[in-house]
């Protein structure tokens, strides 16, 4: 990727891109240059919020991020530069910006899975601004040629035109039985968004709450709440894991035979980077019997 701001004397600790370090923020991901690194004792690194009015370069265009609670990404598209995004994140645009639908395959499957059916593109010259609808942080991920990133559905904000977008089965599911009822569970959704850069591209996400990143070493594993996953490198493996807490033997208030309660986790295994968000859906504890699942492990306490 082209260096910005002069010779590569500064390497951003968050996106690992090299720049002159003369600006207040990294020109590739917007992270403040002078911020003190905040790493928890367990190794999670807090991703600093993009500074208000910071600019992120891509191609001949840039993106200015403004706002604190629900940041707005205001893109100044030059010439024929273009970006794509889900239609529901468009906030405003200049009248001369070309807007149209981006055709996607597998529309029926996407509709059934609750994923955005329509991607729009915006082509310069002119401004187009995007924002999501929950408080949180904008995450900018500069991508090298060939880099692949997997993103939890509904977290995508925008990507440059040279980033290809597909989706793959998440491969994470299980069925439970409780009484006479069977239920399918999809802890991270039926599909996961996959972005592959063809050249040097930019991927923008919006995460509810705060964002923490961690680089897993080969073979290193960690258990996370499934819906807390924000993104991961394609090299990071994921698998279901169930844990039965000691004493959680039957549903409160039930009589006779009950089902042992269990907690659902995602086991992430390195090598590669993972990011989690601090706001997630708390539907990961169940009182039921697991009848089938995608590849998984389990552990019973006590």
């Amino acid at each position: 990727m082209t260096d910005a701001g002069g010779p590569g004397s500064y390497t951003c600790r968050y996106c690992r891109m090299s720049s002159g370090g003369t600006d207040l923020s990294c020109p590739f991901c917007g992270a403040p240059v002078d911020v003190t690194e905040r790493v928890t004792a367990s190794g999670w690194e807090e991703l600093p919020a993009i500074a208000d009015l910071a600019r992120i370069q891509f191609g001949r265009s840039d993106c200015q991020v403004s706002g604190l609670y629900v940041p707005v990404c205001d893109m100044n598209l030059a010439g024929d530069d273009w970006v794509f995004f889900s239609h529901n994140v468009l906030l405003w645009c200049d009248t001369q910006v070309e807007l149209d639908a981006l055709s996607l395959d597998g529309a029926w499957n996407r509709t059934l899975a609750g994923m955005p059916l329509v991607m729009m593109y915006a082509k310069g010259p002119g401004h187009v601004a995007l924002s999501h609808n929950v408080p949180g942080e904008t995450v900018a991920i500069p991508l090298h040629h060939g880099q692949i990133v997997d993103v939890l559905e509904h977290r995508f904000l925008a990507a440059t035109g040279n980033v290809s977008y597909t989706w793959a089965s998440s491969g994470v599911w299980f069925w439970t039985a409780s009484g006479g009822e069977r239920e399918q569970h999809l802890p991270i959704g039926r599909f996961i968004d996959r972005f592959t850069s063809e050249g040097n591209g930019l991927l923008l996400l919006h995460a509810p709450g705060n964002v923490f990143i961690r680089d897993l070493a080969p073979g290193q594993t960690i258990l996370i709440q499934p819906s807390a996953l924000l993104y991961k490198d394609a090299s990071v493996g994921l698998q279901l894991h169930f844990e039965y807490p000691a004493g959680a033997t039957q549903a409160p208030g039930s009589f006779g035979l009950g089902y042992r309660g269990f907690q659902t986790f995602l086991r992430l295994s390195g090598p590669g980077r993972v990011a989690v968000q601090s706001v997630w859906d708390n539907h990961s504890f169940h009182y039921a019997r697991i009848t089938s699942s995608s590849p998984s492990t389990q552990w019973a306490w006590g």
Binding site: G67, Y69, V70, L90, L91, L99, T111, L117
Partner: peptide
């Protein structure tokens, strides 16, 4: 652009000056 399973139309508000316009991001 048409969106959703029932192919809803996408409509934007065209604001024409002069004057102030206030927007909210969420």
């Amino acid at each position: 652009v048409r969106t959703g399973i029932f192919r809803h139309g996408l409509f934007l508000a065209e604001m024409t000056g002069p004057g102030r316009v206030g927007i909210q991001s969420m």
